[in-house]
Amino acid sequence: MGWDDLTGQAEAIASVRAAAAGDGMVHSWLITGPPGSGRSLLAYAFAAALIAQPGREHQTEVQVAARTHPDLGVLSTDAVTIRIEDVRALVASSQFSPSVGRYRVMVIEDADRMTERTSNVLLKALEEPPPRTVWILCAPSDADLIPTIRSRVRTVRLRVPGVEEVAELIARRDGVSLPDATRAAREAQSHIGMAHRLATDEEARRRRARTLQLALGIHSVAGAVLAAAELLEVAGADAKAITEERDAEERESALRSLGIEPGGTVPPALRSTLKSLEEDQKRRATRSLRDGLDRILVDLLSLYRDILLLQLQVAVDPVNLAIYSQLEVAARTSTPVQTLATLDAIAEARTRIDGNVAPALALEAMLVNAVRDSTPAP
């Protein structure tokens, strides 16, 4: 489990496996790495290795994979930030001794989504953990956590795997052809989760292709405004595709647990329960939309990066190899200075959206920088 789904991370795997065997063990860990590198996969594989008693490895792996092991505590969020009350609850449960395993392991995914106040609640637990409790935090970078937490954890850094490594994993695991897996891995820029979606979901491929075509077709400010509106619609459709089915399943499950038939009237006394669920789903929708917008912006960064490399005559394979002829046209109809300005505008849009600027305004401001004449630049 876990180890087989990690690719290109031999050094990190060796480090945590040695610790689980008793070599260099500490009680607070931080796993960092770019999106899609496998932070959570490594965290849970490490957790299973820490918990498992000799002879019970397989059973432990199955329970950890299902997040049902009694000695595993998990905190993840579908919202923009991790709630302080959830961290307090996890900290309280970390004080118990292991019930059947060697260690009690507490995993926090997306630890970078904790506010400073929430981080300080966790800090107290990291300073004096029980002797058989291990904390594993996951974040893109150690810089995403407050300095006092960084000073109390041992960091394991994951690298960006190569396109060939990700393609081999996707082809083996998802049963797609190696050429299709290679294209998906290249266009996902080695993000394993995104490569899986592109390799197995035709609609995800269509949305990405439409994003690039919109950017390449902007020749006026009016066109930039219209393209921004459509990109926001594309991101919304992507977010809806991810959350809609899950929302429906959660609501149906909640109604069933309350003894209410589908389509039945919800008694006033039980409405607060469903209202709380709906609020959680709204928070998840907000995060999912932001994630969808960020995926679009990352795709646009790859597009203009390809264009810039062509303009500078750098002999590197483009990310968007499938539209190479269009990249050549775009490179001839702009200058490297213009392309760099567009790349800066995309980076600024990511910062603005993360700072709660209205997405439509951030996208419009960004795409105005992408306006190009249809005639070759001098």
Rank of each mutant, 00 (worst) to 15 (best):
Asp5His: 11
Asp5Thr: 09
Ala10Asn: 08
Ala12Phe: 03
Ala12Thr: 04
Ile13Ser: 00
Ser15Cys: 06
Val16Gln: 00
Ala20Glu: 00
Ala21Val: 06
Gly22Lys: 05
Asp23Pro: 01
Gly24Ala: 14
Val26Cys: 11
His27Tyr: 11
His27Val: 06
His27Gly: 11
Leu30Lys: 01
Ile31Cys: 01
Thr32Glu: 07
Pro35His: 09
Pro35Asn: 07
Ser40Gln: 11
Leu41Asp: 11
Tyr44Lys: 06
Tyr44Glu: 10
Ala49Phe: 00
Pro54Met: 12
Gly55Cys: 14
Gly55Met: 13
Arg56Val: 09
His58Pro: 06
Glu61Asn: 12
Gln63Val: 01
Ala66Met: 14
Ala66Phe: 11
His69Tyr: 09
Ser93Trp: 07
Gln95Gly: 15
Pro98Phe: 01
Ser99Ala: 14
Arg113Glu: 11
Leu122Val: 13
Leu122Arg: 03
Leu123Trp: 05
Leu123Thr: 07
Leu123Phe: 09
Leu126Gly: 07
Leu126Trp: 07
Glu128Cys: 15
Arg132Val: 02
Val134Gln: 02
Leu137Ile: 07
Pro140Met: 05
Ile146Phe: 01
Arg150Asn: 12
Ser151Phe: 08
Thr155Gln: 11
Val156Leu: 06
Leu158Asp: 02
Val163Arg: 02
Arg172Ser: 14
Arg173Trp: 14
Pro179Thr: 05
Ala181Pro: 02
Arg183Glu: 10
Ala184Gln: 02
Ala185Cys: 05
Ala188Ile: 00
Gln189Tyr: 04
Ser190Glu: 04
Ser190Ile: 03
Ser190Lys: 03
Ser190Gly: 05
Gly193Ala: 14
His196Ala: 13
Thr211Glu: 13
Leu216His: 08
Ile218His: 01
Ile218Asp: 01
His219Tyr: 10
Ser220Thr: 10
Val221Cys: 06
Ala222Lys: 08
Val225Thr: 06
Ala227Val: 05
Glu233Lys: 07
Ala235Leu: 08
Ala237Val: 05
Ala239Leu: 03
Glu244Cys: 03
Arg251Thr: 05
Ala254Gln: 08
Leu255Tyr: 04
Arg256Ser: 08
Ile260Gln: 01
Glu261Gln: 07
Thr265Arg: 00
Val266Asn: 00
Val266Phe: 00
Val266Ala: 00
Pro267Glu: 00
Ser272Asp: 12
Leu274His: 00
Ser276Arg: 12
Leu277Ser: 11
Gln281Gly: 06
Arg283Leu: 14
Ala285Gly: 09
Leu293Gly: 13
Asp294Gln: 13
Asp294Lys: 08
Ile296Met: 11
Asp306Leu: 10
Ile307Pro: 03
Gln313Cys: 09
Val314Ile: 11
Val314Trp: 08
Val319Arg: 06
Asn320Glu: 13
Ala322Lys: 03
Leu327Phe: 12
Ala330Cys: 07
Ala330Trp: 02
Ala330Ile: 05
Arg332Glu: 15
Arg332His: 15
Thr333Ile: 10
Thr335Pro: 05
Asp344Arg: 13
Glu348Tyr: 08
Ile353Glu: 02
Val357Met: 14
Ala358Arg: 13
Asn369Phe: 14
Ala370Pro: 03
Ala370Asn: 03
Arg372Glu: 04
Asp373Gly: 14
Thr375Ala: 15
